[in-house]
Simulated scan of single mutants.
Amino acid sequence: MISIAIANQKGGVGKTTTAINLATALAATGHRTLLIDLDPQGNASTGLGVQVRDRKRSSYDLLMGDCTIDDAVIRSLVPGLDIIPATQDLSGAEIELIEVEQRTHRLLNALQSAGTHRWNVCLIDCPPSLGLLTVNAMVAVQSILVPLQCEFFALEGLSQLLQTFERIRARFNEDLSILGVALTMYDRRNRLTEQVAEDVRACLGDLVFKTVIPRNVRLSEAPSHGVPALIYDMRCAGSEAYMALARELIEKLPKAEVAA
C-alpha cells in the first residue's frame, strides 16, 4: 500500500480539499483508497458526509491504541473510498501523546498491524501544524504531498515544512520523500499568483506538479453538501483540475505497489 501525507503547517491552503478530491479521484480510477482524517477539525470527515454521531471510533482512538484500523474505518459514499474519521478528541492528543511510549510511531504501528492489503493507496489529511500529529503522519508514510497556496507568505511556510521534513527523514524515516508540491487557489488574473508559481517552480523544479488548482466556488460549496467537488459538480474547473492532478500523482507512484 502506498501511503501519502498531505501536509502543510499553514492553514487555508487547501489540504483538506486536496485530500478529499484526490482520494475520490483515485477511487474513481479503480484504486482502493483509504483516507485518514488526522485534523481535529474533522473537515475531511464532514466533507465526505460522515456525521459526528457516526464517528464511533476515530483516528484519536487509533493513535491512543484503543482500537484497530478495522474498528475505526467507515465506508464513504464514494465507491472504493474508506475513511477513518476525526473527532475533537484529537485536540488533546498532542499533550496526551507526550507521555505515551513511541509517541512518534503510533500511527505507523497501527498501519503495520492492520490488513492494509485492503487498499492500494492511503492518504492522510494532516492538521495545520508541525506537532506530534503531523510527525506521526510523516513517520507512517512513504511520501508527502504539499498543497501550496499561491501567495507570498506560503513560501515562508514551505521552508519551515521542508526543514521539518529533513529532520523527520534524518531521525525517524529515512525513506521519506516529497511526492510533489501542488499549487492551489491559483488566480490567473492576479500577477502575484503567477509570480509565486514561477518562484516555486524555479526553486523546486520537477517537484512541482504541472497541474494547478484554481480558485473555484464549487470547491468551496461542495463540503457543505457532504460530498467531494468531483461528485457535486464534476465538470467545474476545480474538479477537472483535481482529476488532472490525480493522473499526475498516479504516474509518480510505484506501479507494482499501487497494483498490489
Results as ranks from 00 to 15, higher is better:
residue 1 M to I: 10
residue 2 I to N: 02
residue 2 I to Y: 00
residue 2 I to T: 05
residue 3 S to L: 03
residue 5 A to G: 10
residue 10 K to C: 11
residue 15 K to E: 08
residue 19 A to F: 03
residue 19 A to N: 07
residue 19 A to T: 07
residue 19 A to E: 03
residue 20 I to M: 12
residue 24 T to C: 13
residue 25 A to Q: 06
residue 28 A to T: 08
residue 29 T to D: 14
residue 29 T to V: 11
residue 30 G to F: 03
residue 31 H to W: 04
residue 31 H to Q: 12
residue 33 T to Q: 08
residue 36 I to L: 13
residue 38 L to C: 08
residue 42 G to S: 08
residue 45 S to W: 06
residue 46 T to G: 07
residue 51 Q to N: 12
residue 53 R to N: 11
residue 54 D to S: 13
residue 55 R to W: 04
residue 59 S to C: 07
residue 59 S to K: 01
residue 65 G to P: 05
residue 65 G to E: 11
residue 67 C to R: 04
residue 69 I to E: 00
residue 70 D to H: 10
residue 71 D to N: 15
residue 73 V to H: 01
residue 73 V to I: 14
residue 75 R to H: 10
residue 76 S to E: 05
residue 79 P to A: 12
residue 83 I to S: 04
residue 87 T to H: 05
residue 97 L to E: 01
residue 101 E to V: 13
residue 102 Q to N: 15
residue 102 Q to W: 10
residue 106 R to Y: 08
residue 107 L to H: 08
residue 108 L to P: 00
residue 108 L to F: 13
residue 109 N to L: 12
residue 110 A to T: 08
residue 112 Q to M: 12
residue 115 G to M: 08
residue 117 H to Q: 15
residue 123 L to R: 03
residue 123 L to G: 07
residue 123 L to P: 01
residue 125 D to P: 00
residue 125 D to C: 11
residue 128 P to M: 12
residue 129 S to E: 11
residue 131 G to H: 10
residue 133 L to T: 04
residue 138 M to E: 02
residue 139 V to E: 09
residue 141 V to Q: 02
residue 142 Q to M: 08
residue 142 Q to F: 03
residue 144 I to N: 02
residue 145 L to F: 03
residue 146 V to T: 15
residue 146 V to Q: 09
residue 147 P to K: 07
residue 148 L to T: 11
residue 149 Q to V: 08
residue 153 F to E: 09
residue 154 A to E: 03
residue 156 E to C: 07
residue 157 G to Y: 02
residue 158 L to P: 00
residue 164 T to L: 15
residue 164 T to V: 13
residue 173 N to A: 10
residue 174 E to T: 13
residue 179 L to N: 03
residue 181 V to R: 01
residue 181 V to E: 02
residue 183 L to I: 13
residue 183 L to Q: 03
residue 184 T to L: 06
residue 185 M to F: 14
residue 186 Y to T: 09
residue 189 R to D: 10
residue 191 R to E: 09
residue 194 E to Y: 04
residue 196 V to I: 14
residue 200 V to F: 02
residue 200 V to R: 08
residue 205 G to F: 03
residue 208 V to G: 04
residue 211 T to S: 11
residue 214 P to T: 12
residue 214 P to Y: 01
residue 216 N to F: 08
residue 217 V to M: 13
residue 223 P to N: 10
residue 225 H to R: 12
residue 226 G to Y: 06
residue 228 P to H: 10
residue 228 P to A: 11
residue 228 P to D: 10
residue 233 D to I: 10
residue 239 S to W: 00
residue 244 A to Y: 01
residue 245 L to K: 01
residue 245 L to C: 04
residue 246 A to D: 02
residue 246 A to R: 02
residue 247 R to Y: 01
residue 251 E to R: 13
residue 252 K to G: 00
residue 252 K to I: 01
residue 254 P to R: 08
residue 256 A to E: 15
residue 257 E to S: 14
residue 257 E to W: 11
residue 260 A to C: 09
residue 260 A to L: 15
